[in-house]
């Protein structure tokens, strides 16, 4: 398309206040209109990744939670004696399964 592009201002509206009494009672709304100070439909507690990471080293996170259960492989080392170990419990069955995986990368999950 040819032709000159006409410069146009972004549409806006000015509201002139001559007296403080013209200010809205509710200061979270804008004179002459409403701005949402919250998300329509309700507020949510939102955190960006970096905000969460900043709280990572808070002193509260240094000690393990009081009720942290000892679960071999995830909250305590999997070498713990007496704990069931996924690999050693059924060691012989592991080998054929691995072979199967080589043939079919989408091997069956057992949920």
């Amino acid at each position: 398309m040819s032709g000159k592009t006409k410069v146009r201002d972004i549409p806006s509206r000015r509201v002139l206040l001559t007296d403080p009494s013209q200010l809205p009672i509710d200061y979270s709304s804008t004179p002459g209109g409403t701005l949402f100070s919250t998300t329509p439909g309700g507020t949510r507690i939102i955190y960006e990744r970096h905000e969460l990471l900043q709280l990572r080293n808070s002193p509260l996170t240094r000690t393990p939670p009081k009720n942290l259960p000892k679960i071999a492989g995830v909250t305590s080392p999997s070498t713990t004696k007496g704990s069931p170990q996924p690999d050693s419990v059924n060691g012989q069955a592991t080998i054929p399964e691995e072979k199967k995986c080589d043939e079919d990368p989408q091997f069956e999950m057992d949920i």
Binding site: Y47, S58, G73, T75, D87
Partner: peptide, 30 residues
């Protein structure tokens, strides 16, 4: 196995920091 419930960012990190990372888990696990 139930590990724990968190309701705040700090509680989350307290659990997460004392649990194995997926890359460290051995065998098949979820």
């Amino acid at each position: 196995k139930y590990v724990g419930t968190v309701a705040s960012v700090e509680q989350f990190w307290a659990y997460y920091s004392h649990m194995g990372r997926p890359g460290d888990l051995t065998g098949h696990s979820d």
